[in-house]
Design a binder for these strands. Structure first.
Lengths: 243, 243
DNA sequence: CAGCGGATTAAGTCTATACATAATCCGATC
DNA sequence: GATCGGATTATGTATAGACTTAATCCGCTG
């Protein structure tokens, strides 16, 4: 990584030609060691650039990166400060279910359970910003890992964007079809826990009353609702990441 | 296409000064409209810069951003391509529990349930990379929202970094103490669902057998283990984000 | 044909400079 | 003294040019 080159710099400063990662690391060090106190304002970019002996753009890149992760707060003219109580940001990778299964070393299987169009439940319609009773396509399917239930997919779809004639989910899951055909939409999602009722227990081959991890999503494309979905994972599933 | 692009974004191009967000938006448009096919390689930065009439650094910023979100895959010399099956990235904000409670409009309360030092269970020791039987400080506490149980915090701590004399958790939670005093460490975490047994049901004031969302974390500072924690949230808790 | 190594390529980065923009500060005004 | 508006300021962004680095490509060799 960073080597000090001869560089013009004086003595008290770190050698010339710092990479932005080196600046980043130095900033983290100062935060951790309370050289920059929580709540306080840190020197501005120009000062740091001069002190460290690099271009302001390099400092900018480093501090912008740290701000994105929650290590710093920046405001125009307001300067950059260390947050009093930091809010760390963690990133999850949301893959296609099939990939998730395969990444865990299992064979992915898929079974379509139902697919019909009818009036949406009120809470689904409102989550998608549609008037009550709007007809939506309702699809249920089960994803398998080595023939064992892995994830139940319950979904409501905008029938204009995903018409039953054009999008058939008996072989390819809606999950994957959407990602391939309407990829790159925006929306919200959340995680919660759900108790397996008799029906769910039968589908997921788990004891009635088991706790299952559920992930719900709504997705839009340019403010047009596409789908609201709930994915219910098998007992013991753990969604992991690092930060 | 020389100059016919309509609508997209705010700026008309002509003569330069596209913002990197405009370049980003244009790239997303091409991906969505299959102008750039999944799996295919897109023009390199220099070409795009020439085509769009901006500097290569601007294109770089836009494409780097998209790659970070999973819209594109980039490799040196390999060029930039549209992933066959995209892996979207979603970001959660991990706040201090007190803040989470207050953000939901409740008064935060806190009750220390226990705090003693003893040999760690094997799976905790191994998660932290410590030899079996290493003594760890074991802390349990309950976070309240308007006097109702909100989150149970179960934690093992490295007693050298968090000695019982120096860090007392009867008023300030370990959760918050750590963030204030050993902020900015790295680690992994995951979400899962857990069934409330009799003890948990009593603590969380929920029916026995209820499904609860659990978040587990291990954190390190420069490879030195700090803590392994499990946070068990009240029934019905939903962790949400947007993407 | 397999394997090695150098040439080539495209992304990654740093620099210096300039201008844009959002906040804040501060003094003038009512 | 409260309000408005302009000066100030730190971050945000764009640009051209040069250099670095990781991968790939490809031709040479055994």
């Amino acid at each position: 990584m960073s080597e000090s080159r001869a560089g013009s710099g004086g003595q008290g400063r770190v050698g010339g030609n710092l990479t932005w990662q080196a600046v980043r690391a130095e900033a983290i060090r100062r935060i951790r060691e309370r050289e920059w106190m929580p709540g306080s304002r840190i020197p501005d970019e120009a000062e740091l650039a001069a002190e460290l002996g690099c271009a302001r753009a390099t400092v900018n890149r480093a501090l912008r990166d740290l701000a994105a992760e929650g290590y710093l707060e920046r405001r125009r003219k307001g300067g950059t400060r260390v947050p009093e109580t930091p809010v760390r940001k963690a990133t999850f990778e949301i893959a296609v279910i099939r990939q998730d299964v395969e990444a865990r070393g299992h064979r992915h299987g898929y079974r379509l359970l139902g697919d019909e169009t009818g009036a949406a439940p009120d809470e689904i319609a409102s989550a998608l910003g549609l008037p009550k009773g709007t007809p939506l396509r309702h699809v249920r399917a089960l994803h398998l890992a080595d023939d064992a239930p892995f994830c139940l997919e319950i979904r409501w779809l905008n029938p204009e964007l995903v018409p039953p004639e054009r999008a058939v989910f008996d072989a390819l899951s809606a999950n994957e079809w959407l990602l391939r055909n309407l990829a790159y939409s925006a929306g919200s999602f959340g995680f919660s826990a759900r108790t397996a009722d008799a029906e769910l227990a039968a589908l997921m081959a788990c004891p009635e009353g088991a706790a299952l991890l559920a992930m719900d999503r709504t997705t839009f494309m340019d403010a047009v609702p596409i789908t609201a979905a709930t994915l219910i994972y098998r007992e013991g599933y753990r969604l992991a990441t690092t930060m």
